[in-house]
Design a protein around this nucleic acid. Structure first.
Lengths: 149, 149
DNA sequence: AGAATTTTGTTTGATATCAAACAACTTTAT
DNA sequence: ATAAAGTTGTTTGATATCAAACAAAATTCT
């Protein structure tokens, strides 16, 4: 009986299901608080590019937990709007190096406060220790599943 | 530095991002182990119906963390394949009561072993205490976000 | 009782995502 | 050096999901 009064049977406390429900709620909360002005995944991509200039698309995609192909329309959008720049990599003619633009930096700054406030709300709600423990366990969980894939 | 050697900047250890990455990996692992014979969400729905006969679609959807509308094609599929039965509810003429069929029970049994084995792998990999703590924190996280929505 | 509101299941777009295939290119093996 | 295998970014097709709108029915309010 995790939720309401419905029985989950063998599903009770299974991590996969709880992950999916938690993730859905987190995403919806983000969208609601940010009023749809930016998608959580898009913000992630932009910050990753800003903090790791000169990386390939594949590496950024992997760090964001996205497929390479999912990145293409996102980057096209950022490029069209002048938030990032794509420069052909010197040593690899297939690869395109990406860098944030000043406009992109402004964009990140514009939303950083609200997003940090949302995270602070989570920290306050869970307690600082629990919040840290949750992050840690989620990372451990990922490392576990990344091995055999 | 949670992943690889890329920097996450302000995103480091943010729960939302770690949740999304963990959830994606969990889903992919499930699909790979079950070889696509059943989707995680579909199995969830079926077990929920089995353990909570006579519930409305809306309640099942909520318990599974899905939108009502997302349930419609899933239930249609289960109904067409004889895994569930849909009976008009007595006291509410809008509502359709659902129940598992013997064939549906067989279907659940068929995959229960493999899915439990997958969860056992997670328990073993994380450690029993960490696994329990992760479930608990995920549920706490959901309760936190459910309040103000 | 009657009107206004809410709820239920559904349909209809919209979209985020992946997986597979592809050409161009690089790296590795022979 | 040449062939084989792997990688990069992209296109294309499939699909899971949601959100908004809807009619029918139930509930609440006055």
């Amino acid at each position: 009986m995790t939720n309401n009064d419905l029985s989950y049977g063998m599903l009770d406390r299974m991590v996969g299901l709880e992950l999916r429900k938690a993730q859905t709620l987190a995403s919806q909360t983000f969208l609601r608080v940010l009023e749809g002005r930016i998608l959580p995944g898009h913000f992630t991509i932009l910050v990753l590019i800003a903090h790791n200039p000169g990386q390939s698309q594949s590496r950024i995609a992997e760090a964001a937990g996205l497929d390479r192909s999912s990145l293409v329309p996102i980057l096209k959008h950022f490029d069209n709007n002048g938030l990032i720049q794509r420069i052909p990599a010197r040593h690899d003619r297939r690869s395109k190096t990406m860098a944030i633009t000043p406009k992109g930096e402004d964009f990140i700054k514009k939303y950083t406060g609200e997003i940090q406030k949302l995270e602070d709300m989570l920290i306050k709600g869970l307690g600082r220790e629990n919040h840290a423990k949750l992050s840690e366990l989620l990372i451990q969980f990922q490392n576990l599943l990344k091995r055999d894939s």
